[in-house]
Structure formats: structure tokens, C-alpha cells
């Protein structure tokens, strides 16, 4: 092997080792890299107890209710398998809608209601004109998943 080939194989080996190390580290910290938990994970008790965490999923259609104060809202977060009721007092982002994705930060109350201190809208990766969206909505059977990143299958 010439010195040049030696140097290149050394660089290559170094990169492979680095890649493996990175994969192991990321795998070890898997749970910390997750931005939110799904309702299924909440139901299975995989969430930090007594601590603030984030929950993400679809805002189930027809569940959004506003209280008379105009600020407090109730809705149900769903990942099509499990459902978690959420209470939030505050202003919702523009894109927060029923049937769309959302991420809420807060704590689980003893009764199983998620009390949120912050609600973020999670939009999907589809971009199209409103007319196309309407046509698609008509064509598609109701309740079908429009995004593949909103709900993570374990």
C-alpha cells in the first residue's frame, strides 16, 4: 500500500468508526431526542411522571370546545389508537385546527387530563392550493391520514 492509499484508508476507517460511535450515542439517547410523546405512549405510561412533557398528535375533529372566557379550550389529542383530553388556557396559533396536528407542553393531571401551558401547531409537508386540497378531501375517505410524520408508529 502506498502512503497515499494508507492515508485515505485511515480517513475512511476513522469516518466509519465515527459513524458507528454516533449511531450508538444517538441510540442511547433515543428517548431524549424525541420532541413529543404520542397518546399511545401516554396510555402505556412511557412518559415522565409528575414532570412537564410534550404530547403530539391530531386534534380530533369535533372535539374542540371553547369556554365562555374565550381563552380556555378543551380538545382531544389522538394518534388514531389512543386519545388524551387536553385543557389549555391561552391563545392558539393560527394553524391550530381540528383534524390537524398539534404539540402541547404541560402535565398530566391525576384524572388523566393533559393540562397544557403551551400549544404549538404542527403542519405537515404537503403544500397545495386550497382548491386542490378541497378536491383531495372530497376524493379521500374521511379520517384518512394525510401525513406520515404526524403519527409515529412504534
Amino acid at each position: 500500500m502506498t502512503p497515499r492509499q494508507k492515508r485515505f484508508s485511515l480517513i475512511g476507517l476513522g469516518l466509519v468508526a465515527l459513524g458507528i460511535a454516533a449511531a450508538l450515542v444517538l441510540n442511547a439517547f433515543q428517548s431524549n431526542l424525541v420532541f413529543f410523546f404520542t397518546p399511545t405512549q401516554v396510555a402505556n405510561g412511557e412518559v415522565p411522571k409528575g414532570q412537564s412533557f410534550r404530547i403530539g398528535g391530531m386534534v380530533e375533529a369535533g372535539t374542540l370546545q371553547r369556554e365562555n372566557d374565550g381563552l380556555t379550550v378543551h380538545f382531544v389529542m389522538s394518534d388514531t389508537v389512543k386519545r388524551v383530553p387536553v385543557t389549555y388556557k391561552g391563545i392558539l396559533p393560527d394553524l391550530f385546527k381540528e383534524g390537524k396536528g398539534a404539540v402541547a407542553q404541560g402535565k398530566l393531571s391525576p384524572e388523566g387530563t393533559f393540562v397544557a401551558s403551551e400549544v404549538l401547531a404542527k403542519h405537515d409537508e404537503n403544500y397545495m392550493p386550497p382548491e386542490a386540497a378541497e378536491a383531495m378531501a372530497k376524493a379521500k375517505a374521511a379520517g384518512k391520514q394525510s401525513s406520515n410524520t404526524l403519527v409515529v408508529t412504534p
Binding site: F36, T38, V103, D124, E125, Y127, P129, T149
Partner: peptide
């Protein structure tokens, strides 16, 4: 893809049809 993030997934990828209107 590896973790659930607030950021949406890729609209354009090698493996799937683009999830955007053609002019966009």
C-alpha cells in the same frame, strides 16, 4: 424520520413523489 419532531417531514425526496403542487 428518526424522531418525532415539530418540524414537518421532507416534501421532496428521492423515494416518494413530491408532496407539493407543481408550480410551487
Amino acid at each position: 424520520r428518526w424522531w418525532n419532531t415539530l418540524h414537518q417531514g421532507a416534501s421532496v425526496s428521492m423515494t416518494a413523489a413530491p408532496k407539493m403542487a407543481a408550480t410551487m
